[in-house]
């Protein structure tokens, strides 16, 4: 076996994200969670609480147009999990599209990721927040309901969620598939829309509109 082939085999990674976004007031959270529990069943991984710390970085040099934005994410609840590096490409903007489709690069990394982004690549941290909530999975579709919280730093580098930034919860319905529609027999767009339809009266999910 040629070692080059072995390396090449790992270059094909799902990288197209199809997503819809919405929000729900805290008062209606229970109704939404109840509906999701009913839809997604009792399998492990459903209604799983999560608390993720997001650090948003961008290139600060004025010569880099447009600036590159990336984010580093880590779970606060399970500290043995690796950090995740995330980069979103620009949205494929067609007015007729029903869901957001964009490239995503998601890579697990070792713990020194933030330091590497700052000192190794020359990125600057813009802001940080904690997303606290619940995730569900329905087939390949991942549904997360979470609330943005401010971060409170403690002495020993631990981060905790402080007060909430708003009274509503973010709802995200997304799936990540291989790029190049030729290999896609299934229709990720349809799957996302089906889930959105099932949640309709409680939350109205929309495509992310960058222009707004």
């Amino acid at each position: 076996m040629d070692p080059d082939l072995k390396i090449a085999a790992f270059n094909n990674i799902p990288n197209q994200e199809y997503a819809l976004f919405g929000s729900v007031l805290e008062a209606h959270l229970e109704t939404l969670l109840h509906r999701l529990k009913g839809l997604c069943g009792q399998l492990p991984g459903n209604a799983e609480p999560f608390q993720d710390h997001y650090l948003i970085y961008s290139t600060k040099s004025p010569n880099i147009i447009p600036p590159v934005h990336v984010r580093a994410v880590r779970s606060i609840m399970s500290t043995f999990m690796p950090w995740r590096f995330q980069y979103y490409g620009s949205e494929i903007s067609e007015a007729s599209r029903m869901v957001t489709q964009r490239q995503i690069i998601d890579a697990c990394c070792s713990v020194r990721l933030p330091k590497f982004l700052e000192d190794g690549l020359g990125f600057n941290m813009d802001y940080e927040y904690i997303l606290k909530g619940f995730t569900f999975a329905k087939g390949r579709v991942r549904i997360s309901v979470g609330r943005m919280m401010k971060t409170a730093h403690e002495v020993n580098m631990q981060v905790e969620a402080a007060e909430a930034l708003s009274g509503s919860y973010l709802v995200e319905v997304a799936t990540v598939v291989f790029g190049g529609s030729a290999t896609n027999e299934e229709n990720p767009e349809k799957e996302i829309l089906q889930v959105a339809e099932l949640l309709k009266p409680i939350v109205d999910l929309k495509r992310l509109d960058v222009k707004r």
Binding site: F10, N11, I13, N15, V68, V70, F85, Y87, G89, I105, D106, A107, C108, C109, S110, R112, L113, K115, F116, D119, G120, L121
Partner: peptide, 22 residues
């Protein structure tokens, strides 16, 4: 990194896709 090697990281292969964006 060339200068401070103590901040080197191990990453999933998909990171290479991001490097080509840079």
């Amino acid at each position: 990194p060339d200068k401070d090697q103590s901040i080197s990281i191990t990453a999933e292969k998909s990171m290479m896709g991001f490097l080509s964006k840079l």
